[in-house]
Structures are given as C-alpha cells and as structure tokens.
Simulated assay, not measured.
Amino acid sequence: MSAVDTDDDVRDPWLPDLLLRTERDALVPLLRRAPEAAYGLRTACPGWTVRDVLAHCAAALVRIVEGRLEEGVFLPAANAADVAERADWPVARIVDELERGLTEAGPAIAAGDGTLDTVALGEWIHAGDVRDAFGEPGAYGGHSLSLALPLLRTASRRRDTPRLIAAVDGHTGPLVLGGEVPGRPAARFVGDATTLIRLYSGRPLVATRYALTGATEPELLIYR
C-alpha cells in the first residue's frame, strides 16, 4: 500500500466505485452462503442486527442509484425508516438489492461533486461490521483496505477531525489524516490500519494494540 503523506486532495472519482465493486465480490458470496440465523446476530451498530445493517446499506446505495437524495436522507431517522420498510422482506431480496447497489452506485457517485464519495467508505465499514458479527478474521481489512484508507482521509477532513499522523504497519510512509488546527501540534498514532479504521469509525477496540498521543478517541470519530 502506498503512503498518503501530502496535503493535496486530488479526487479520484472512480475510487468509490472500485471500493464498492471490490467489496461486492468479497461480501455477497459470504452472505449467500450464510445460514438464516446469522442475519439475526447483533453488530457493532447499537440496536442493529446483521439484517438491519444490510437493509440500511442496500437502501442507501439504491437511493443514490435512483437519485432519491432528498434533504436528510442519510440522517438516523431516515436510516431507521429504510430499515423498517424492509422488515418483512426475505433476506435474499435484501441481498439482491445490496448487490445491485454495490454494482450500480459507483458511476452515480463518480458523476457527482465528491459529496457522496465517503458513502462508499461507510458501506465498506458496515461490511466489516457484518464480517465481525460473523466471526470472520480481518473484519475491517482485506484486499480493499488500501482503497478505503484514502476515503478515510477524505472523511476525516470533512468531519473536521484534528490533524493526525499515523505510522501504520505495512506502509512506507505516514498517513496524514484530519485538518490542521492552529496552535495545536498534530496527533500521532502507531498501530495497524484495521485498528485505525476502528478508531475513526467508533468500532470496538477490544483486543487491539495501538498508541495515540495528542488527541482523544472521541475527537477522531467521523460518525457522530
């Protein structure tokens, strides 16, 4: 994986599409072979089962595909309404809708102004929530991790998290996240990339090892 070590924000409009399609190829086969009972497992998202997470992910992507992006569409109340709307759907229908969204949302995101780029990151993190609930190894890692990290950088800046320089295992240089705060030195992180994802997304950090100085965990959250 290459280092993200400059302040230049050069948008790659097709990066979200690549991340979504890569995740589709990894996640959908896992979902197709999972037993029905697995969809009732609780996830890292408070109050949501695997089924709920997938319903939310599918609904969000199909809204993008169909251009149904009214004000407040991704706020908690709207997310809950989307999940409730799918409460009586067979699991296979939810997975079908998710597969469609993962396949078709990328071009719609690429055609936009970049506002929706980090939706792809959220979808990938939710896929990690599902893998984590299933007990799969490397829940927030895998081949698509290198695609997710640049979008984490974008999200960390848009959510006004403080500047952080991360020394990440396997990287040839530092990852520079967040934005500069006048008069405040950059925070420092040492650890692996999957733990960095957990830290910024508010996922459980049990059994992880990392060092964080110059910032608190709540300051880094991109989902609040």
Rank of each mutant, 00 (worst) to 15 (best):
T6G: 12
A59E: 05
A55N: 00
L196D: 12
E23L: 07
A193V: 11
V28C: 11
A60H: 02
A37K: 10
L15K: 10
P185I: 04
V53I: 04
V91H: 10
A127V: 04
A78E: 12
A111F: 00
R100L: 11
I109R: 10
E23S: 03
A110D: 05
R188W: 02
E219H: 03
D113L: 04
N79G: 06
T49E: 08
E123N: 00
G106C: 03
L220K: 04
A207G: 02
R93C: 05
R11D: 02
I125V: 15
L175K: 08
A77K: 15
E180S: 04
R188T: 11
V119M: 11
R203I: 03
E71D: 11
E104P: 05
T22I: 07
V10T: 13
T161S: 13
F74P: 09
L147N: 07
A215T: 00
T216K: 11
T216Y: 03
A60E: 08
V10E: 12
L145N: 06
L221D: 00
T194D: 14
A55E: 02
V4N: 07
A81K: 05
I94V: 14
S146Q: 10
T115D: 12
L19Y: 00
D88M: 03
L27K: 02
T161V: 14
V83N: 01
P204C: 09
D12Q: 12
S201I: 07
L220Y: 08
P35D: 08
A81W: 00
A155T: 03
G114I: 03
R153S: 12
Y223Q: 00
R184M: 01
G170M: 00
V73N: 08
E70R: 02
V83M: 02
R68N: 10
R100E: 03
V53H: 09
R159H: 11
R163D: 10
S2E: 15
H171R: 15
Y140F: 15
L199V: 14
G40S: 04
G122F: 13
T195W: 10
D5M: 13
V95P: 07
V83G: 01
G106N: 05
R153L: 07
E66N: 11
T208F: 04
P218T: 13
A110V: 08
F134T: 09
A84R: 15
A108D: 07
R42L: 11
A211V: 08
E70M: 00
F189I: 03
V130F: 00
R157S: 02
T6M: 12
A211F: 00
E36C: 10
V206W: 09
T118C: 15
A77W: 06
H143V: 15
P107L: 08
P13Q: 06
T6Y: 12
S144A: 12
P185V: 03
R42Q: 13
A105Q: 13
V206A: 15
A84P: 09
P13H: 08
D52N: 12
G214K: 08
H126D: 09
D82Q: 10
V65L: 13
W89L: 15
W124K: 12
W14P: 01
Y39F: 15
G178F: 10
E123Y: 00
R32W: 11
G101H: 07
D8V: 15
V190R: 14
R24H: 09
D5I: 08
G128H: 11
E36N: 13
R159M: 13
V176T: 14
V206R: 14
R131F: 09
L220H: 07
R159P: 05
R209K: 13
E85N: 01
V73E: 07
